[in-house]
């Protein structure tokens, strides 16, 4: 598994696999929106009716939420609370931790149910965890091979200065 210190790196192949898994979960759980967030608050992938959603903010708040509940868990001697559920009048949010590092968020309404979402999320979590294990392995291989493969090794000071002009 990825350590807390390592950068998360996403490659095309894994991104495709993740997107497919999210699409499948969206279909099978009859939900509205699904997204995947890094525990640090970075949005990894999203699927469903995301057009009118501020996914960046959602990602950051979700990570804050998980971090806060994680803090609560530690205070009472639990490792973490792996599932959170928020019930609204129309829409509900189901949040779960996948593979210890990423957060899976499912937004659904009355067309689905908590039971169905829980069931489908469980299956999808295992599949997603496998992808993230592959990703971690690949990142490690890449970083132990020559560092010149990193596109950032050649960033110049000028490149950075140009960002602010």
């Amino acid at each position: 598994m990825l350590g807390p210190q390592s950068s998360l790196v996403m490659y095309d192949e894994e991104f495709q696999r993740i997107s497919q898994l999210l699409e499948k979960l969206l279909r099978e759980s009859n939900s509205k929106v699904i997204f995947l967030v890094d525990k640090n608050g970075q949005l990894i992938a999203a699927s469903g009716e995301t057009a009118n959603l501020d996914t960046t903010s959602l990602a950051s708040l979700t990570a804050g939420n998980i971090a806060a509940t994680g803090g609560l868990a530690k205070l009472i001697g639990e490792k973490e609370f792996s599932i959170l559920f928020h019930e609204g009048e129309k829409d509900n949010i189901h949040i779960s931790i996948v593979g210890g590092r990423v957060i899976l968020v499912v937004i659904f309404d009355q067309r689905s149910s908590l039971g169905l979402v829980r069931l489908r999320v469980k299956k999808a979590s295992n599949d997603l965890a496998t992808v993230f294990e592959d990703l971690a392995r690949r990142s490690q291989e890449q970083s132990s091979s020559s560092s010149s493969s990193s596109p950032f090794a050649e960033i110049t000071d000028d490149d950075i200065d140009n960002l602010f002009n």
């Binding site: 210190q5 390592s6 950068s7 998360l8 790196v9 996403m10 490659y11 095309d12 894994e14 991104f15 495709q16 890094d38 640090n40 970075q42 990894i44």
Partner: peptide, 8 residues
Amino acid sequence: MSFINYAS
């Protein structure tokens, strides 16, 4: 830490 996404 930073998140580098080659896909996007």
